Every structure is written in structure tokens, then in C-alpha cells.
Amino acid sequence: MTETSSSAGPGSSLLGPADVRRLAAELDIRPTKKLGQNFVHDPNTVRKIVAAAELSPDDVVLEVGPGLGSLTLALLPACRSVVAVEIDPVLAAKLPETAADRAPDLARRLHVVPADAMKVTAADLPVQPTALVANLPYNVAVPVVLHLLAELPSLRSGLVMVQAEVADRMAAGPGSRVYGVPSVKLAWYADARRAGPVSRSVFWPVPNVDSALVAFTVRDTLPSTVDRRALFTLIDAAFAQRRKTLRGALAGWAGSAAEAERLLTVAGVDPGVRGEQLAVSEFVRIAEASALR
């Protein structure tokens, strides 16, 4: 790890630890747990993230929570444009200046949207993104990813940095100990996999949890035309009482244990299994059976 800036390629200079602290001091920024702010200050790490994202020159990247711009500067040379959504107005105002200063030939590719990513819709963005690449605030990582997938049908792929335990849950398959609501809901949109660990030492301040990357590829077609909200309500119910079999866990959702058993049987699902044993396609079949009532 170096205390100096490193070149990311033609026209771009990445932020090192000294740069990050200098910018934070200039803006009187003190990273807060409330916003989940941990700034990446290692140039090699952001290079690896961009490489792992496998972007094409035509990609439009959506970056959530760009902060001081460490990852933003590495993304600019790798794609057609970057749409950076930043909730902190001070950071949002500074980012274009940082890009103009350190990547003057590429700064025109950056579009900064001062907004809460949990409320962003396609209409709020100047150009529609094809890839999500972000160091996500740990406290809202899963809701942000699911919200963006629901609101931005142009997204085709993603690579996000999240808390290691969250990464495990997002990429887990049926039968895994950590398979749950995030796993199934993300699987409805995309195929996800863990894409490697990230050292605590590359952040400032150093977090007290481990981090990891999750990569996902959005499917060309969703598993079903079933209503997403109805499906997600079913998934929530199935995991609300993990120790119960689906016959019991879905009793409230279906209206009674007997009706839950009937719907499960119609869907070809054993009423005696637990939610953690079902793939998203099986949840879709249950939702379809319910829709026919």
C-alpha cells in the first residue's frame, strides 16, 4: 500500500491514503456509522474491483455512495460513463471537482446525482445504467441492490462490495446454512456468486467487519410473470419462522395451515420441508398456485 497517488491509465490518477485524508479534512468530513461510510484508499483494490466487474467500453456504470471518489476515478477509464448517486450533499458537490482535477480527459463521463439510492428511479438518472459497481453502505446493502434491480431494468450485471456475512447470504444456494430472504430475492433477478474477499486495511476508517465482493448477472427473462410483490411477501413469510416446516410457516400467509398444505401440494412442493430448502423457481410455483385461488 502506498501513501502516494497511483496512475490508473491515461488521463486518470487514483487516490492514495494521503489523498483521501486530505480531501476529508478539506471538506471537514468525518466518516459516520449512520451512513455506513468507510472510504477505500488503496489504488490496487479499486483496480481489482474494476477488473472483476468485467466492464465493456459501452457500459454505463451506476455507482452508489462514491464518497471521495476512489472507485469513481478507477471506473471512468473503463466504461462509457459513470452515474454516481451520492446522498451526502457535500461529497456530491466535491466529486465533479475531484474528477476534473485528477482525470481531466475523462471528467465529462461523470454524472453525479445527489440522491438517496433507496429512492432513485429510472426517471431520476440522466442515462440508464447497464452495470452496478459500488462499495455499498453495509447497513442498507441488500435493500439498495433489490431496489435498484426493481427500478432499473437496464441493469445487466453488478459487482458490489458488502459485509462478508452479507455476501455469503446474497450468493447462497438452497440448503446452505445462510440461505435466506436476500438469497432468494436476489436469485429472482440474477445469478449471484461471491467474487473474493477485501482486506479491512484498505478502508479508512478500518471497519470492524470483513468485506467481500458479490458479482451478479441479471437474467434475460425472469422465472415467471408472477407479481414480484406477491412473491416477495411469500418469501418473507417462508423465512419468518425458519424452524417451522412450510405448512406451518405459511399458515398465516395462506389463511390456514390446511390451505398452505393444499397450495404447496398444487405447486408440487413437499409441505414438510423448510423454506431454506427451496429454490426461487419453487417459490414461484407456490405464488402461481396462490394466484389461481
Rank of each mutant, 00 (worst) to 15 (best):
V112N: 10
A25R: 15
G67S: 11
T245R: 15
V61G: 00
A150C: 04
R177G: 09
H41V: 06
V184G: 02
F232W: 15
A258P: 09
L213I: 09
V20P: 05
S154W: 10
R102W: 09
A240N: 13
L55K: 09
R156D: 08
F232G: 04
E276V: 11
T2H: 02
R22P: 03
A230Q: 13
F216K: 09
P17G: 10
V273F: 03
L264E: 08
R285Y: 02
S157V: 08
P57E: 15
V206Q: 12
L35G: 06
S70L: 02
A107C: 05
H41E: 08
R169I: 00
G180R: 06
A122E: 15
V64E: 01
S81V: 05
Q128C: 03
V113H: 04
P114W: 10
A78F: 10
L110Y: 05
P137E: 05
A230R: 13
A123K: 15
F203V: 06
R169G: 01
G272Q: 10
Q37Y: 04
I286T: 11
R229P: 00
A164C: 07
A249T: 12
V145D: 06
I87M: 09
K33S: 11
P43G: 02
P104C: 02
L73K: 13
L95F: 01
E151P: 05
W253P: 07
A134Q: 08
D210P: 01
V64K: 08
M161D: 08
A134Y: 02
A103P: 06
F283D: 03
F239A: 01
N135A: 03
R247C: 00
G36N: 07
A8F: 11
L222F: 12
Y138A: 05
P182R: 11
S183Y: 05
R22F: 01
H111C: 03
V184Q: 09
R243P: 02
R285E: 09
S56I: 01
A100R: 15
D124F: 02
Q37R: 13
N135S: 05
A51H: 15
N38D: 12
A52Q: 11
E261R: 08
L234E: 11
P197L: 04
G16N: 03
S7W: 05
D28Y: 03
V133F: 12
D59G: 00
R156V: 10
G11W: 10
T221K: 08
A131G: 09
P96K: 09
A257S: 10
A117I: 10
H111Y: 11
V206D: 10
W204P: 00
R47S: 05
G248I: 07
R229C: 00
S70Y: 14
L246E: 08
V181P: 00
L292A: 15
R219I: 00
Q128E: 11
A258R: 12
V266Y: 07
R228L: 11
G255N: 04
V202F: 04
R156I: 10
A78T: 14
D58V: 01
